[in-house]
């Protein structure tokens, strides 16, 4: 088993993926996520396949490209399929001796729109086919690149421009799609959730995913300061509370059925989901002009139910881990 960094000082000093000079919003954690992916794999050359998304647009405004690695963008919904082709091309050229044998890692990355919604077919296909690549979904819970429209990832009750918080309908009515369980159902060797506020955990997961021979998937929550309506300094604070409140627990799934919970520790006192929600302007209508207790209760109940489900899966995995 590979060694994983245990402290931040273990990570490489140099930037290996995204460079300074990108034009993501001030304080956007997508920049951090891209940096961490590069730092997670210090010993392997990367090829970066980007879906259309904030990260793509903001890092490559011609002729400024903020990438130290070979970087390619094709379209919105097809990063996984494009990565399939890159992987296949590289492997065949190496097999035929036309390019040097290298342990190149292909990283595909997309936002929640490109992953949950328009891109899920291509992702499902690529995972089913078993290409050796890592797909990373950075989830900011809406179509932020086009200006905050609801996606399958948007949480219940959230305001977006296409799920406005009106008198008749107070924000998005549906619940967040259980993406990782959908991915895990493919039975791939490794998939995991992560948070930009837990950099070493994310780095370990990316490294673990890279070490898999075959497809692996990491789903990382990335609160969007513009879309969620909070200050430029708060991305990591919000993402931390997403985990601590059990709204976005961090866990891993091995071979599609062995669930391992990482954070938060179930023994710790439960943080109310309200502590997480009240930082976010997109949910202000739950608190002002008057408190909407019934909606808050629905959200808390949903979080509790999903958490219980996850604990059950993790406990079952532990009990049945006799093989």
């Amino acid at each position: 088993m590979a060694d994983y960094p245990t402290k931040l000082a273990d990570l490489p000093k140099e930037e290996r993926s995204v460079s300074s000079g990108h034009r993501l919003c001030t304080g956007c954690a997508a920049g951090t996520i891209a940096r961490l992916v590069g730092k997670a794999v210090p010993d392997k050359p990367l090829m970066w396949v980007n879906a259309t998304c904030c990260m793509e647009v903001a890092t490559t405004i011609y002729p400024f490209a903020a990438w130290h690695v070979p970087w390619i963008h094709c379209a919105f919904e097809n990063a996984a399929a494009t990565a399939s082709g890159v992987r296949s091309g590289l492997d065949m050229l190496m097999k035929k001796g036309r390019i040097p044998q290298r342990d190149i890692e292909v990283i595909a990355i997309g936002g929640d729109g490109g992953t949950y919604d328009i891109g899920i077919q291509a992702i499902s296909g690529a995972i089913e086919r078993g290409h050796d690549f890592v797909y990373i979904c950075y989830d900011n819970e809406a179509y932020m690149n086009t200006g905050i429209q609801r996606s399958g990832a948007t949480m219940h009750a959230a305001w977006t421009t296409t799920s406005p918080a009106g008198e008749a309908i107070p924000g998005k009515q549906e619940f967040k799609k259980p993406l990782l369980r959908i991915v895990a159902a493919h039975g791939l060797e490794y998939c995991a959730t992560a948070s930009c506020s837990y950099p070493l955990d994310f780095v370990r997961k990316v490294k673990r995913a890279v070490d898999v021979k075959g497809p692996a998937f990491v789903h990382i929550i990335q609160p969007c300061l513009r879309g969620w309506r909070f200050g430029t300094e708060m991305s990591f604070q919000v993402a931390r509370l997403a985990v601590e409140s059990r709204f976005f627990p961090l866990y891993e799934v091995y071979w599609g059925h062995k669930f391992v919970l990482n954070y938060p520790n179930p023994i710790l006192t439960k943080v109310d989901v309200e502590d997480y929600l009240k930082l976010q302007g997109r949910l202000r209508h739950l608190f002002k002009p008057e408190r909407k207790q019934e909606i808050l209760d629905v959200i808390q109940a949903h979080v509790d139910k999903e958490w219980d489900k996850l604990l059950e899966l993790a406990e079952f995995s532990e009990r049945s881990a006799t093989y």
Binding site: A81, T82, S84, A122
Partner: peptide
């Protein structure tokens, strides 16, 4: 034929994979 034959799940992905493989320098 010594070739990686990708059975994609749609034509959209077929062309996407061709795009990626050609980007890598392969004959596609």
């Amino acid at each position: 034929l010594d070739c990686d034959y990708i059975c994609v799940e749609s034509e959209h992905s077929a062309m996407s994979a061709c795009f990626g493989a050609s980007a890598a320098g392969a004959r596609v």
